[in-house]
């Protein structure tokens, strides 16, 4: 197995007026060939900025990277030949048909007309775009457009495909359809690097992922290993906001409690064997005369991992 992406202390700082914004702060990353690797994090975490640097769109302020076997700083042209990049905004020309867009894209990568047309037809079949490929792109639905974008990114059979928020704004059916397409790409040997702020997407699609917050990778691993880090179960007690502090006082010294987090109007308690502990907690709150409105017991999710790493919920910050 060789490395498809390897970065060392990759940083990006922007100047806006007198302020300096550190968008990416020392990202260390290695992505194996053949992986689906994900960046999970809220908007503004630095996911897209990192991806745009790796895709040669943005010069890094510091650090080094090798992408698809070439040095990002010294050989950006060779990097470009070997990667596909699908931006959040897509990138197809709206007043032209899907097929015309695909053929042009092929020719931008140096194919002759006939080869580009053949490749466009192949992708049209593979992504089931036959029913709309000869209409102008501006008439496409969100899902159709996204498939079109994906096809544009794949025209030259890149070894590495970057997908920036591939399913943002899609209806559930189109999302699942796109996930299937990404899995097919992976099955055909393509390495996929994607960013997402959807937990279920990261969980369902990625072999490994990095959780990103404030420009840094706060945790990295397989979805399962990340969830194991949190370990144990999460009990969520819904109660009115002003009682949260009292609730925490009641629980703080109990031996079964590992961690307590506040949400808007709920306490999240990390415990082992939640089903045994729950009756205890109910009794404690009863005797302290603290009313509980709702109770939930959950196995750890990636959101819990994110919560543990950053102290915030991804759902709230996304």
């Amino acid at each position: 197995m060789s490395l498809m992406i390897e970065t060392k202390a990759l940083t990006k700082t922007f100047k806006s007026g007198k302020q300096t914004v550190e968008a990416v702060r020392g990202v260390e990353l290695s992505v194996q060939q053949g992986e689906i690797y994900g960046f999970l994090g809220p908007n503004g975490a630095g996911k897209s900025t990192t991806m745009r640097m790796l895709a040669t769109l943005l010069p890094p302020s510091g650090g080094t990277a090798r992408v698809a076997g070439h040095d990002l700083g010294r050989e950006p042209a060779l990097v470009r030949k070997n990667i596909g990049y699908v931006a959040q905004a897509g990138g197809s020309e709206p007043v032209m048909t899907g097929r015309e867009n695909l053929i042009l894209q092929g020719r931008l990568f140096g194919m002759d007309k006939a080869t580009a047309a053949k490749r466009a037809a192949e992708l049209t079949d593979a992504l089931e775009m036959g029913s709309f490929i000869d209409r102008t792109v501006k008439t496409y639905s969100g899902g159709q457009r996204r498939r079109m974008d994906l096809a544009l990114g794949m025209i030259h059979r890149p070894a590495l495909l970057f997908l920036d928020e591939p399913t943002t704004g899609l209806d559930p059916q189109s999302r699942y359809h796109l996930w299937d397409e990404i899995r097919k790409l992976h099955a055909a040997g393509t390495t996929v690097f994607l960013t997402t702020h959807y937990l279920d997407e990261a969980d369902a699609l990625c072999h490994r992922l990095a959780i990103m917050d404030h420009g840094k990778i706060v945790s990295e691993g397989t979805p399962a290993s990340l969830k194991q880090q949190v370990a144990g179960d999460v009990i969520t007690l819904g109660m009115s906001g002003e009682l949260l502090m009292k609730g925490e006082t009641v629980l703080r010294n109990q031996p079964f409690v590992r961690e307590i987090h506040h949400r808007d109007d709920a306490l999240q308690i990390y415990v082992e064997r939640g089903e045994e502990v729950l009756p205890n907690i109910m009794r404690l709150f009863d005797s302290a005369a603290l009313p509980i409105q709702t109770v939930a017991l959950a196995r750890p999710s990636l959101d819990d991992v994110f919560m543990r790493m950053t102290g915030r919920s991804l759902r709230e910050s996304a």
Binding site: A55, T56, L57, A77, R80, K81, I83, G84, Y85, A87, Q88, A89, G90, G91, S92, E93, P94, Q105, L108, F109, G110, L152
Partner: peptide
């Protein structure tokens, strides 16, 4: 810039 066309082209070798 808005619809991503320019960015898409800039990632090609053109």
């Amino acid at each position: 810039l808005q619809n991503g066309v320019l960015e898409r082209m800039r990632v090609t070798p053109i």
